[in-house]
Design a protein around this nucleic acid. Structure first.
Lengths: 207, 207
DNA sequence: CGCCTGCTGGCACTGGGTGTCAGCTAGGCA
DNA sequence: TGCCTAGCTGACACCCAGTGCCAGCAGGCG
């Protein structure tokens, strides 16, 4: 057995990545053309030219095809959070971490279509939230560390992460409904401001 | 055809309710004894003495058996919210509405076991969150009405509801982990206080 | 009594997901 | 160069949740 932590991008790994990408592309095309629920695994594997069994070696569920390249991995997010400066306000740090992962969007039209599918398909939303739950476990410890020791620190940290995630989800919903009229950050900030208490009288008003 | 809104507790309706209750009891016993995922519909219907097909006439999915008597219906929650006094703070109103629905708990041990099952079974958590999503649509309009007109009122209302639901979920998690050491309200308040800005009444001294 | 309505069981079927096995191929090693 | 094995693959047989359909039966009513 080889050390698992030793990165070795051999021919197999590359071939596997190619297959993974190809299945994803084929499946997404079918989903967008005919709808997620209406597309069966059999159709996907027929077009992709692989066996039904192999499909499930790449993706645990049908939903994962959509979510794997849409929902960031918890570990990646945590790494992004750890890169934030240590003294930063916790809300700003989480915000920065989340949006630092947003990459370039080559095809906004397609992104909108995929997003719409995500929000309209119950099984996809459910599974995406399941993935969001995973975020809690990755992010909460780092949040707790930044907040410092305190009674009920765990619940406190999870609540903060939970609200950020919820606001992000709702921001996406609003962003989608507006047809991406404004950047996602705008909606996110609006949502977050709605739930936090109004700012106390600031000692240093902006000039 | 009879008017659907005309309540008619005839023999049929009562018999149906009896069957519903009996299936629920049988299924819950099996779930708690052998685990949710490990219990098949076939086992349930065998013990309950009904056909497989009839089971799905009472419950849309296997998960619904657990959730129907655990997750409050959105319409019921909205009604509870509408009963709150009109001038009440929106957070207090939501809190009051949610906890006004909590009934008597005859068997705390069983409640804990069911809760544990809920939080440990991915498909149950996923579907429970799906039901929570339904809450948004029911509660947000009333929240928006109470907040009064304003820019981005819809997102604002949904964010508030979303955070209350998230905190409730996380409170339940903490409550469960503590073995119900304190009432759920305590955890809920702690979670909500964590996400809102500190009260502007007085600058808190560093302790 | 006969009629309608709505529930019921039985059956066949779809579709997602898993276990197993035999066959193939990349790459290490002698 | 040729063997060996680790890891991939397709094929087949399953399991189980959920649905459509149909025939039969029981409650409610004129």
């Amino acid at each position: 057995m080889q050390a698992a932590d030793d990165a070795r991008p051999g021919l197999w790994a590359r071939s596997r990545q190619r297959a993974y990408d190809e299945i994803t592309e084929v499946a997404m095309d079918l989903f967008l053309a005919n709808g997620f629920a209406q597309t069966t695994i059999d159709e996907i594997v027929a077009v992709a030219g692989i066996s039904r069994r192999s499909f499930f070696r790449y993706f645990g569920t049908k939903e994962d095809v959509v979510l794997d390249h849409f929902i960031a991995d918890g570990a990646v997010l945590r790494a992004a959070l750890e890169r934030r400066p240590d003294g930063e306000d916790i809300w700003a740090a989480l915000r920065g971490a989340v949006f630092s992962l947003a990459g370039e969007v080559p095809d906004e039209e397609r992104l909108l279509a995929v997003s719409r599918m995500m929000y309209e398909t119950p099984s996809l939303r459910a599974r995406s939230m399941e993935k969001h739950l995973h975020w809690y476990d990755h992010l909460a410890p780092e949040v707790e560390r930044r907040l410092g020791a305190g009674a009920g620190g765990k619940l406190r940290a999870r609540a903060i992460v939970g609200c950020v995630v919820t606001c992000l989800d709702l921001a996406g919903e609003a962003w989608l409904q507006d047809g991406a009229a404004a950047p996602l950050e705008t909606y996110f900030d609006a949502a977050l401001n709605a739930i936090r208490r109004p700012l106390p009288t600031r000692p240093s008003p902006p000039g």
